[in-house]
């Protein structure tokens, strides 16, 4: 599993990558009350806003970590945004994407580097 400085986790599975936010990020955001997901099939560029999360306090964006295509979204989050607080590293994944190049994952942090970053 890889991690971005934006507190996303990226889990490669075959030619797809599943994306969510870390436990640390979920704790910092507080109680999530709304998640807006992209449509499956959308082509995205790295750095593009693809998900909006609203906590009781504020709205935050999730950025596409890689160039590629969104192939599946976790529609359970629309009805149960609180899942992001309950199980951010598991059931509350946001989307699966097919990256233009799996090699682009290599630039991201491993778990030890991420843990060091958040201190």
């Amino acid at each position: 599993m890889k991690f971005t400085e934006e507190h996303e986790w990226l889990k490669p599975e075959g030619e797809l990558v599943t994306v969510g936010i870390t436990k640390h990020a979920a704790e910092q955001l507080g109680d999530i009350v709304f998640v807006e997901l992209p449509e499956a099939g959308r082509s995205v560029s790295k750095g593009e806003e693809v998900v909006v999360i609203e906590s009781v306090k504020a709205a935050s964006d999730i950025l596409a970590p890689l160039d590629g295509e969104i192939v599946e979204v976790n529609s359970a989050l629309a009805d149960s945004p609180g899942l992001v607080n309950e199980d951010p590293m598991g059931a509350a994944w946001f989307f699966r994407m097919r990256p233009a190049s799996m090699a682009d994952l290599d630039g991201y942090m491993d778990e030890a580097a991420y843990n060091a970053m958040i201190g």
Binding site: D31, V56, K57
Partner: peptide, 9 residues
């Protein structure tokens, strides 16, 4: 702004 329970609870 909040304690351990969090805003919602």
């Amino acid at each position: 702004v909040q304690y351990g329970l969090g805003v919602l609870k």
